[in-house]
């Protein structure tokens, strides 16, 4: 009796999950079929019908339209991710293992920086960027993303490094290692997983960011989000293009998630469960 009830509820559960998964995938379905329609075939009434003949030209056009902004995004996201992860790692190491007077006070002040709405620093920011001559290009955007990425990277590394027992460090001291020695030979070799988590997080954040991108980059250095928003928000939209563009813009981060998602979740939890 109990067994059968369990089996039925199991079937029911499985069916419900499949249904929900379908619902979650509806936007993907619609995006893909719309991106494969010729502009003339796009009709609100037949939005749900797949195209009779896939119209690959949407993607060819989208690729040529977005080539330069995709390149910008790649350069931006990769360099800013590497830099902010490296800085976050060394900061996390110091704030975790080399507490200096006032460090307890500094940490919440640092972490606060990751929650602020960027509107509240936007105008002074671009005036400052202009003054130091970094306004408009990719180096400036990289700097901005590195700085505003510091709070989260520092916090994540710090919570990872808290797991490294202090006794291990003590032993290293006895062996004569100094500040950098311990980092180089003890901490860094243990930092693989946190680097992966931080890199996934930062890469998606920077790749997906819009406000800085739209205000701080000259047209030639626009990242993909701005290019997509411009295309989709422009006049006379033929929807196959924004949809193909969405697929292109989404692809890198989706691939990262599907391949590395489990590390990412593990990393998120390290923070969340403690908090």
């Amino acid at each position: 009796m109990y067994q059968r009830g369990a089996r039925i509820s199991r079937w029911f559960l499985q069916a419900l999950l499949i249904l929900l998964a379908v619902v979650y995938l509806i936007p993907v379905y619609l995006t893909l079929i719309t991106s494969l329609k010729a502009p003339a075939d796009i009709n609100l009434m037949t939005a749900w019908k797949p195209p009779a003949h896939p119209y690959w030209a949407s993607y060819a056009t989208a690729v040529s339209k977005f080539a330069s902004s995709l390149k910008n995004s790649v350069v931006l996201a990769i360099s800013a991710t590497i830099l902010s992860a490296a800085l976050g790692s060394i900061n996390g190491y110091v704030l975790c293992k080399w507490e200096f007077p006032g460090a307890r006070l500094v940490l919440p002040l640092v972490v606060f920086g990751m929650f602020i709405p960027y509107q509240s620093i936007l105008v002074p920011l671009f005036q400052f960027m202009r003054r130091i001559g970094l306004y408009g290009g990719l180096p400036g955007l990289v700097l901005v993303h590195v700085v505003y990425g510091l709070p989260i990277t520092t916090l994540l590394f710090r919570s990872f490094y808290a797991e490294i027992p202090d006794e291990l460090l003590g032993a290293a001291f006895i062996d004569g290692a100094d500040f950098f020695g311990i980092y180089r030979w003890l901490v860094l070799p243990l930092s693989g997983p946190p680097f992966l988590v931080v890199a996934i997080w930062q890469f998606t954040q920077i790749w997906n960011e819009f406000l800085f991108a739209v205000t701080l980059a000259r047209p030639a250095y626009q990242p993909i989000t701005v290019a997509l928003a411009n295309l989709a928000g422009g006049q006379a939209v033929s929807w196959n293009l924004p949809m193909a563009g969405s697929v292109l813009a989404a692809l890198p981060t989706v691939v990262v998630y599907v391949l590395l998602g489990r590390y990412f979740i593990r990393g998120l939890l390290a923070g969340a469960l403690k908090g």
């Binding site: 739209v214 047209p219 701005v226 928003a229 411009n230 295309l231 989709a232 928000g233 422009g234």
Partner: peptide, 10 residues
């Protein structure tokens, strides 16, 4: 240098 979209706000 062309900036489009966002109803001209961008």
């Amino acid at each position: 240098s062309t900036v489009t979209g966002g109803a001209g706000v961008n």
